[in-house]
């Protein structure tokens, strides 16, 4: 108990130190490297908070965010060079510090005055969980009890991608997203992107499959698929399809369409939108998860790749 508290204390200090470094360091590139490390440390914190599903998501999404920010930092380096030397006025720093301190102090006070006993929905979840046939309570919440949140989230992802794509210059619209990368078949990126994806794809499907009963699920699996695709793309071994491609667009909306269709079918069959007929919950949830995993993987990967820039702007 005591050893656990000491370890947690050290972990919290490490997280705060990396976070502070991310905010305070001069170079933007160094800050993004710090932020990538921070994402991995947060995954450990989630494990300590007994939330393995959140830990998997944080680790996977943290890595994608790292790639996104590192690449942006490199591209923006020339135009940010001047800004890196600027120091904000002392008055501004003092004001910001006071505001930040007030927010932290308020939240800290809240931590010590939370209601006792802690409110919890565990009894309701465990009472209903058997009807879904799922062993993982988090998956049961995501795909059955709060399915509407998960459905809307998939829609948000697609909207975000539409927004990113719509930033494309007129001339490049419909083209291949992101910067074109010339592959060198002999370099280490090409080697890694031949070595890792077979393993990564198997692990992704495993995480998806066990997600019904153990930590895992479509978000984590989809993120892993996206990472494998990005690896091969950045090594120049594969090229993302043009954004005008009909097949790509179907792949993007497949998960949401399956989810919506089965949700609507629930109205006549089970009496409510997004309700599952008795005894059919688990197979239907697995079907939704499989379709969503592919769509989420493609969407997340393309979000990192960015808008079609055409030839002129590279």
């Amino acid at each position: 108990m005591m050893a656990g508290l000491v370890l947690d204390g050290l972990l919290a200090l490490l997280v705060l130190a990396v976070a502070a470094w991310t905010i305070g360091v001069c170079q933007t590139f160094a800050a993004t490297v710090g932020f990538t490390v921070y994402g991995l440390l947060l995954a450990v914190v989630w494990m300590r908070l007994a939330a393995p599903d959140a830990a998997l998501t944080e680790a996977a999404i943290g890595a994608l965010t790292g790639v996104l920010l590192l690449r942006a930092a490199i591209q923006l380096a020339p135009s940010e060079a001047g800004l890196n030397r600027l120091r904000p006025a002392l008055k501004l720093r003092l004001l910001a510090g006071t505001l930040a301190f007030a927010i932290t102090a308020t939240l800290a006070a809240v931590v010590f005055h939370l209601p006792e006993p802690a409110p919890t929905l565990v009894p309701q979840v465990t009472a209903q969980q058997a009807s879904t046939g799922l062993g993982n309570a988090v998956t049961a919440v995501l795909l059955a009890f709060r399915a509407i949140d998960t459905l809307l989230e998939a829609v948000v992802l697609i909207f975000a991608l539409v927004a990113v794509w719509s930033l494309a210059p007129d001339a490049a619209w419909g083209g291949i997203p992101g910067a074109q990368i010339k592959g060198g078949s002999g370099d280490v990126r090409a080697y890694l992107s031949r070595l890792l994806p077979p393993v990564g794809i198997v692990i992704a499907f495993y995480i998806f499959w066990v997600g019904a009963d153990f930590p895992g699920g479509k978000f984590q699996a989809g993120t892993l698929l996206a990472a494998m695709g990005l690896l091969a793309t950045m090594a120049g071994l594969i090229q993302p399809p043009p954004v005008a491609s009909r097949g790509l667009r179907w792949a993007l909306v497949l998960g949401t369409l399956v989810f919506l269709a089965l949700g609507l079918a629930g109205m006549p069959l089970a009496g409510a939108f997004l309700a599952y007929p008795e005894g059919w919950a688990k197979p239907l949830i697995l079907l939704i998860e499989a379709a969503s995993m592919l769509s989420i993987g493609v969407t997340l990967g393309l979000l990192v790749i960015g808008y079609p820039a055409g030839q002129a702007e590279q």
């Binding site: 939330a51 994608l64 929905l121 988090v138």
Partner: peptide, 24 residues
Amino acid sequence: LGGDPVPQALVITGIVVAFSATAL
């Protein structure tokens, strides 16, 4: 259960949505 699964599920949704907002 080590924690309330309802907020945990919402956090997972939140992490993914935050990523899409960052990408945008």
